[in-house]
Design a protein around this nucleic acid. Structure first.
Lengths: 145, 145
DNA sequence: AAACTAAATAGTAATGATTATGATTTAGTT
DNA sequence: AACTAAATCATAATCATTACTATTTAGTTT
């Protein structure tokens, strides 16, 4: 069984991108964010602590490159870009519930897009985003106490 | 019939906020963005051209204050905060289709939240966002030529 | 295994949106 | 007209992100 990192490296190869130490280290770190989002600026800070001398540019550029390859998911929030590892290569299309207390991300089944298409005659739909936020079951539980 | 500005001023009064020249000018400008989003930084630039000496602080603070009053809608995109006037006081809850070419915003009917609640047992849902993007009918038409 | 080359990175500095701060002004009230 | 809390101004700082150019390196070729 291939690990997520091995899968990711295979994707890089398939796209003729070089497997650099920096990219490997980035993937190693980001793979720990499979069910949470993290700010790129925090990834930047972390990587530059681990590897003195690593360039901001390298981190930001690669994160964005990895997104176009489908390895990561990005979203914009509070004037920051947040990133999360996308490990579900089989089902890339999905939507999220995000706990605003612990940050846990839950994938939602089904997509509401179909319902809306009829409301947009003549339009070209290129993308959409559906996100629900609140407290996950665990945090709801804790809050009750 | 009350104008949007009059309605907004009434909301300010109801919340014991002072009706300053700056706030009136801001509303006058923002009311022109009822079906488009605009970057706050652009609002800032515009207002400071109109009123030499107006403070960044004043603009950013008020835009955020107006959002909490339900006068404006904000969203984060590409490391900027975008703002749009919310004039539909009757139906505050809705979702959007945003044309990525001309920026036109179309309100969508119906909300997909209900479908998902069953998938989140024990969770507390505090909010959600559904947004579709692409080209509006007009821009699709033009692109075809 | 050494040479090669395009791609990637480092190092430094700049940019641009937003926020902080403390002194001054003003809307609405007394 | 005086009063006062709220709002604004003016200035500077902060923080995420991007730009730029010289240097390094992964992967290939000889």
């Amino acid at each position: 069984m291939e690990t997520p990192i091995e899968q990711a490296v295979a994707v890089l190869r398939r796209n003729q991108l070089k497997i650099t130490k920096q990219r490997q280290a980035l993937l190693d770190y980001l793979v720990t964010y499979q069910d949470h989002y993290v700010a790129i600026s925090e990834v930047d800070e972390h990587m530059r602590t681990l590897f003195a001398g690593m360039s901001h540019n390298t981190i930001y550029r690669n994160v964005k490159e990895f997104e176009t390859l489908g390895l990561l998911e990005l979203k914009s929030q509070a004037n920051q870009t947040l990133v999360k590892y996308q490990c579900d290569f089989e089902h890339q299309h999905h939507h999220h519930f995000v706990c605003s207390n612990c940050g846990k991300v839950t994938e939602l089944q089904a997509c509401p897009l179909d319902e809306y298409e009829a409301q947009l005659p003549g339009c070209t739909i290129t993308g959409h985003r559906m996100e629900i936020y609140g407290l996950c079951a665990e945090c709801t539980q804790k809050q009750a106490n």
